[in-house]
Design a protein around this nucleic acid. Structure first.
Lengths: 343, 343
DNA sequence: ATGAAAGCGCTAACAA
DNA sequence: TTGTTAGCGCTTTCAT
């Protein structure tokens, strides 16, 4: 007897149920699922029919317990900052879900205390709830990566280990400087020469990286950058103020910004002054957020190839979790410019 | 002997390891974790110390296998439509992650084929990978809810069962008509009388619901709606066209829109004509997306209380998964208007 | 208040 | 190629 029949709610069928129906041992059913090559064709078919007729799927918990894996990838899900244009996470998470699903993994979301970036990881790790993590926001001073390494936790970072170039973990990142370089060259090709930069405060490595793309492009074209750069918080209000000051003091005809949020700030200032973006002054943002796509007249922006990022991350993850584990190299991807009405 | 020491990588400590250190049986350790009241104070403390010193966390897979639960909530994660302003999902998912985590659940994301809304559910269900689902996009004709009910899958819907008011599953939704009513009343109080509506095509129940809030408010103020309404796809381009036609043919001084995306379309048309939103014509959107928050001069919009939605959903979920299960009533929450520069 | 025994459903290792 | 045995780490049941 396999299970009391007719009981409600019926328990899902098990390996043993399938084995009984197919007239084979449980191990043979297991092999049919995991190593079908081992079975004789006719046996496989018989087992397969039993599986289908019962609607059998292996119980995850049992499999996880036995194999010491969960096929779950942990991702700390911090909220998008309200009032910024930065909805990268949404696009990235979707790509990651798609890609990892194709590789047999699901994504487990857990909350993180914004104050303590390591919150949540420890418990999932110790309870072996996930096989690995994808760590985002691995900017300078963020202890996540170092902490995970110290715990020997398998993880791939979305973001370079800025403060530790020789870090032992795999990472995938987007080349911000290359992005702002393309953006700056785009404005140059449109005839602009006085191109201003609005970026973040100096302690933001990512911002400095993006800024360097602007700087080097201007220099390589023999153009001065003095007085054309501004640093501020990543808010619309800050971008707005910075743009006003730059327009008054340096009279730029184009702006390259470290984020769409800042670019929106520029557009606010232009609106304040009755200027039309794309006609009077060019504006380029960074991230190709939804805002860039819908704001009139369309914000030209540097788009991160998040789909590729997800693919590379999952590739690295598969290496890490393979037998034997293989540590992937860091991968740096190039963003591309999406040209719209503001330039 | 509990475990070969010094082996790399070390396996996480188990109940047995803790028991050995604390000098008690495994069962007592289990009780210390799950039913601390059963232990004598000094025993509990000894066990607790052993747990802390070893850094023990119960193995999830083992616990899941034994208890037939996973403490995982499945959420189908479809991507935000590119080119629309609609990034509700991001905010909602975050709220859900926070809230369900507080209740001891994690959120498992799985991809869904946009063509077949039931993809993914079946496998997770049969493999007992999740305890329950949160189903979104349960609009008319979406077979998710009916399918899940037929499978006796525990789930809570974010969205009313429009086509089946007596549906047996718990749901949480936001009162769209109340939202557009507040939006319309707001414009009325600002002195507008010719207030246009731009919504979705007629087969979108949610759109019809939102429209009804505008209709009834106009009527209750003795104002005509004829010629002031337009239906279109939920894209910026459609909203833009609809606004142009309405401005030409009906000369409204204010627009209430079924989405921020459509409202952005209106703003495009205003920009095309050199009109200033908020000064020449008022615009109100729906969803309070990031776009609404950052676009100049700030888009007045109806904000869905997603944090509350998440709280109610988790509450219903806990009922569903409790012993005995309790089926929660449907919950309808009121949105609020966020007033910005466009009105 | 604590312990012993059994078993959740699966797969690794080995035997036939 | 298929079957048998053992055990992953935990909790439920029952005994002490």
């Amino acid at each position: 007897m396999s299970r009391t029949p007719g009981r409600v709610p019926a328990l899902p069928p098990t390996l043993a149920d399938v084995a009984e129906v197919a007239g084979v041992s449980r191990q043979t059913v297991s092999n049919a699922v995991n190593n079908p090559d081992l079975l004789r064709a006719d046996t496989l078919q018989r087992v397969q029919e039993a599986i289908d007729s019962l609607g059998y799927s292996p119980n995850r918990a049992a499999r996880n317990l036995r194999t010491r894996t969960s096929h779950l990838i942990g991702l700390r899900f911090a909220p998008a900052q309200e009032g910024t244009a930065n909805a990268l996470m949404d696009r990235f998470v979707h790509s990651l879900v798609e890609t990892s699903s194709a590789a047999g993994y699901h994504v487990l979301l857990f909350p993180g205390d914004p104050q303590d970036p390591t919150t949540g990881y420890d418990d999932l790790l110790r309870s072996t709830a996930v096989d690995a993590f994808v760590a985002t926001d691995t900017y300078l001073g963020n202890p996540q990566a170092a902490w995970l390494e110290s715990r020997r936790a398998p993880f791939v970072a979305f973001g370079r280990p800025w403060d530790n170039p020789g870090a032992g973990h795999p990472w995938v990142d987007v080349d911000g400087a290359a992005g702002t370089q393309v953006a700056t060259e785009h404005l140059l090709s449109r005839g602009h020469e006085r191109i201003a930069w609005i970026g973040w405060r100096k302690d933001q490595v990512i911002g400095e990286d993006r800024r360097s793309g602007w700087t080097r492009t201007m220099r390589s074209h023999g153009l001065a950058t003095t007085g054309l750069a501004s640093r501020s918080d990543d808010t619309v209000a800050s971008g707005r103020e910075a743009a006003a000051v730059l327009l008054d003091e340096a009279g730029p005809t184009g702006f390259v910004c470290a984020s769409d949020t800042l670019a929106l700030g520029v557009m606010h200032t232009l609106a304040d002054r009755g200027m039309v973006p794309g006609r009077d002054v060019a504006v380029v943002g960074f991230d190709d957020s939804q805002v860039a796509q819908v704001v009139p007249p369309g914000l030209t922006s540097v788009r991160q190839p998040l789909e590729e990022v997800a693919v590379e991350i999952v590739r690295a993850l598969e290496g890490l979790l393979g037998h034997p584990p293989e540590r992937a190299e860091g991968v740096l991807l190039a963003p591309e410019l999406v040209v719209r009405g503001t330039s």
